Simulated scan of single mutants.
Amino acid sequence: MQEAKRSPLLDSLKIVGLAIMACYVCRFWPMVIFLVIYGLAVITRTLVKSRKAKTAKLVPVIPAEPTPAPTPTQRDMENLAFSMICGRITELVARDYPNARWVWEFPTAQKLILEGHEAYILLNQAGGYRRAQVLYQNLQVTGLKYEGIAVAPTQRPADPSPEETEPDNYTLLAFQWVDAHTADLIARCEEARLNGLDHVLVPETELPVAQSWQDICAELARAGFRTQVLAEGIKIMLGVDENEHRSE
């Protein structure tokens, strides 16, 4: 490789040397001086090029280090564990009551579970209105303990006793449902007012059995809501009552 790089310089020097020798033999002195100057210029130019070629080096390309994945925080781990708990509860409810729907009894269920307290869910269309305790250990759901009110049988006994003919009391059920959903209903009413609506409809899919709707309306009235029972659910009316406005 070095001989190949030096060959142009050597060839130039050979040619200049032969030309100087020819001029010397022929006694052509002015040409000898010119060839000597030309030879020095060729040597200088070649040396400069070779030095630049040696000093010019390619800058090595350093590959960029991959960006490390962000370290999950304690909050991220808690949210992941809570989502797995919700998924497990959905599987257990679907296994026992395929048509049922469930919600947390209190919005602070995640905090209760992380602190080790008891947590409950409310079920609708689960053979009646039911309440279930979530059994868990080390943030893993081990089962559900159902409790609450079941739907009365459709076939009436031939000789019912006086105690069996008494209607079911849904007062406690209504109180628990209203207590668990008051904050959500207030937020929905405020949003409806901002959107210019005059009522909010709570569909039957979010309510317990239809027999308890009257008791729920009574509890909502104590909480300051004006309600009306419809076939598809409970209607919460917004605005000022006309009768109260006239009396004023």
Rank of each mutant, 00 (worst) to 15 (best):
167 P>R: 05
240 V>S: 04
243 N>Q: 10
191 E>W: 01
25 V>S: 11
181 H>P: 00
199 H>P: 00
186 I>F: 09
147 E>M: 11
42 V>E: 15
127 G>S: 06
66 P>A: 14
229 V>M: 13
224 G>L: 05
131 R>L: 10
25 V>K: 12
103 V>Y: 04
93 V>P: 02
2 Q>A: 12
211 Q>F: 09
117 H>Y: 12
51 R>W: 13
9 L>S: 08
219 E>Y: 05
189 C>T: 09
226 R>P: 00
213 W>I: 01
223 A>I: 02
86 C>D: 10
63 P>L: 14
88 R>A: 07
3 E>I: 09
207 L>G: 06
57 K>Y: 00
190 E>R: 12
93 V>H: 06
219 E>K: 08
208 P>N: 06
212 S>C: 04
220 L>K: 01
46 T>E: 14
199 H>C: 05
231 A>G: 02
16 V>N: 05
100 A>S: 15
135 L>F: 00
101 R>V: 07
121 I>P: 01
108 T>R: 08
58 L>E: 15
141 V>T: 01
78 E>F: 05
117 H>R: 12
183 A>L: 09
19 A>R: 08
114 L>R: 11
99 N>T: 13
92 L>M: 14
245 H>N: 07
40 L>A: 14
136 Y>M: 03
175 F>H: 07
184 D>N: 03
7 S>H: 10
186 I>P: 00
46 T>C: 06
213 W>N: 02
47 L>W: 14
196 G>I: 03
155 Q>I: 14
70 P>Q: 09
191 E>D: 12
218 A>G: 09
154 T>A: 14
228 Q>W: 03
121 I>A: 06
48 V>A: 12
58 L>G: 00
24 Y>Q: 14
24 Y>A: 15
187 A>E: 11
24 Y>N: 14
8 P>F: 08
122 L>S: 10
100 A>R: 09
72 P>W: 05
42 V>K: 13
16 V>R: 08
7 S>I: 00
247 S>F: 08
129 Y>R: 06
74 Q>L: 12
179 D>A: 15
58 L>A: 12
112 L>N: 10
52 K>Q: 15
48 V>H: 07
168 D>F: 09
197 L>W: 02
106 F>D: 11
97 Y>D: 05
141 V>H: 02
182 T>I: 10
184 D>Q: 11
163 E>M: 07
9 L>Q: 11
5 K>R: 15
177 W>N: 09
29 W>K: 04
29 W>D: 10
41 A>F: 14
40 L>C: 13
